[in-house]
């Protein structure tokens, strides 16, 4: 990892340590602009995520985090700029991306078991019958996230923590190069959140899998982030190592947004783990 001081368009000026440019770039975003009628949501975003790096994407509400994720995932069209995944246009490489949505987006009253969700992710369609090899793969990936006993459990009966464990399994089942997690611990109880952070820390330790975690949770940033990208008003206002950003006044706003009274001055300080 080398210290690079940014100069390119859309990359913030300042003494932040950027990833080694010679590393394989799993995600590369260049001058991304997204407009909706009458408003600019993303205003020239540029950064990249190298192989194996765990990036926390932070910023206040309305900064453009969700718009950014939706654009990367092809759910919103960019106005201009480019998004490349492993060198390919994002739309042609979505099989290389695993996605863990916010809990509120899925219909958890849907009559299904955990295994159905995982096999649906493998097939790209809902399974009527599950083949033996699919069951074996579902067991394997659930075991990987510590949720083997959830295989046959109805999704309506999963706790918040169990739900996110199953969604993480479905995101990882196709062996992606990049996993994107959109505030996965929002609304999850304290125990479930702590357990999920343990899982994220394991992903962070991986040299193969890159991850982008959208979070307001400074405990998650301190525990998992190898780098932090801070969005504000549709622009990248800071991009660097957690230690470089956690002292920034702007990042302290995250905890305020999260409803905490705790301003983060350093990642050595006690950090709020409440969202």
């Amino acid at each position: 990892m080398s210290a690079v001081h940014a100069e390119a368009d859309g990359i913030p000026q300042g003494h932040f340590t950027l990833p080694d440019p010679s590393l394989t770039r799993v995600l590369e975003v260049e001058n991304l602009i997204v407009d909706v009628p009458g408003r600019r949501l993303l205003d020239g975003i540029s950064f990249w995520v190298p192989k194996g790096e765990f990036v926390c994407l932070c910023g206040p509400n309305g900064a453009g985090k969700s718009t950014f994720l939706k654009t990367v995932l092809g759910l919103m069209p960019p106005t201009s700029g480019s998004i490349r995944i492993l060198g390919k246009p994002a739309q042609k490489a979505l099989r290389d991306v695993g996605y863990v949505p916010q809990r509120k987006t899925s219909d958890m009253t849907f009559p299904a078991r955990s295994i159905d969700l995982i096999v649906a992710s493998m097939r790209g369609s809902w399974p009527l019958r599950i083949r033996e090899e699919e069951r074996a793969r579902a067991i394997e990936i659930l075991r990987h996230v510590g949720g083997e006993k959830l295989l046959e459990k109805e999704i309506a009966r999963l706790s918040g923590g169990e739900t996110q464990r199953v969604f993480l399994a479905r995101a990882l089942v196709n062996k992606p190069s990049l996993v994107i997690l959109d505030e996965p611990t929002a609304g999850v109880d304290v125990k479930g959140r702590a357990e999920f952070l343990d899982l994220l820390a394991e992903i962070s330790a991986s040299d193969e899998l890159a991850a982008i975690l959208v979070t307001h949770n400074l405990a998650a940033v301190a525990r998992c982030a190898e780098r932090v990208v801070y969005l504000d008003a549709g622009r990248v206002s800071a991009w660097g190592l957690p230690g470089e950003l956690l002292g920034q006044a702007s990042l302290s706003a995250i905890s305020a947004v999260a409803g905490g009274d705790h301003a983060a001055h350093s990642h050595h300080h006690k950090l709020p783990d409440e969202e």
Binding site: L73, L75, L94, V97
Partner: peptide
């Protein structure tokens, strides 16, 4: 029906 976003991501 389960999740339009996840379904769209799967093509």
């Amino acid at each position: 029906t389960f999740d339009p976003e996840l379904a769209a991501l799967s093509g």
